[in-house]
Computed example of a mutant assay.
Amino acid sequence: MTGRSSFIETYFPGLSDRIFFLCGVLMLGSEVWKQCLLTFVLGHGTYNWWYFPFQLCSIPMYVLLAYPWLRRESTRRMLLAFLISYCLLGGVAVFADTSGLNYPLPSLTVHSWTWHILLLLIGLSAGIVYSRRLDADAKNIIFSRTLSHSLPLRPFFHATLLYLCCCLAAEVFNLSLDRFGLINMFYINPHLQMQQVVFRDLVPIIGNLPAILIYIAATCLGAFLFFLIWNLIFRLMFRK
């Protein structure tokens, strides 16, 4: 009992740790179910690499699963910054073109819509947790007001590095697995024409690779705008 209590106190001390991890487990379970349907029902036993679970909207699942085990404060703040910016962006942007949410099986369509709505809820919940951490720091750290104003963007920069690392991993998947079938992780496979709305219109003008690079830069910019909005909210909430 003591060991169990110590384990919970170490890795799940707060309600947010438990909720985030539970969401991650539920998302993982639903993803396994989705992959089984895609492979054995729609694919008749053949795996479809197009649905390999490594898109921007998939990364929050891995973040939530890792969150309780990473106890370093800067790392946890980076993950929260990722959720309140890139996770929210992934949840919002998909509604600009909902064609990718529809599947031949109604159950998969419901799953896809539910997943992206959950991304919005996770991003908002992470924002609440993040704001409470900032408020706690303001009370516990000497000169914290100066620090919070001079270093407000560091968590976002770290989150952006995480995003760019995911882009690099996605490109490795794209280039190494495309011989097995169509794959377009993060929609940045240089062997396939850009498909994202707005950016696909740039391809005839500037070419496919520049359109991909602009898409990545625009994603970072969009996430940055979300992060700035959150910071504005935080300062209004905790302004003394």
Rank of each mutant, 00 (worst) to 15 (best):
G3I: 01
S6R: 13
I8L: 14
I8M: 11
I8A: 11
E9R: 14
Y11A: 07
F12N: 06
P13A: 09
G14A: 15
S16A: 13
R18A: 08
I19W: 06
F20P: 02
L22C: 05
G24P: 00
G24H: 00
L26E: 00
K34A: 04
L38E: 05
F40T: 02
G45K: 03
G45S: 01
Y47C: 02
N48G: 00
W49I: 06
W50S: 15
W50G: 12
L56P: 07
P60M: 09
P60L: 11
P60F: 05
M61R: 03
V63F: 04
Y67Q: 04
P68Y: 04
W69R: 06
S74E: 08
T75L: 15
R76N: 04
R77C: 07
A81G: 15
F82R: 04
L89N: 06
V92S: 05
F95S: 06
G100C: 03
N102I: 12
N102S: 07
Y103W: 00
S112Q: 05
I117V: 14
L118F: 02
L119M: 11
L119G: 06
L119D: 00
G123C: 05
G123V: 04
G127R: 08
R133W: 10
L134G: 14
D135M: 13
K139T: 06
I141E: 10
I142M: 11
F143I: 03
R145I: 05
R145D: 14
S148E: 10
H149F: 13
Y163V: 12
L164F: 14
C165W: 11
C165K: 14
A169K: 12
L175S: 12
L177E: 06
D178Y: 12
G181Y: 02
I183V: 14
I183S: 10
N184Y: 07
F186N: 08
Y187R: 12
H191P: 01
Q195R: 11
V198C: 09
R200A: 13
D201S: 15
L202R: 10
V203E: 00
V203S: 10
G207H: 04
L209H: 09
P210L: 10
L213F: 12
I214S: 09
I216C: 07
L228P: 11
I229E: 05
W230K: 14
F234A: 13
R235Y: 09
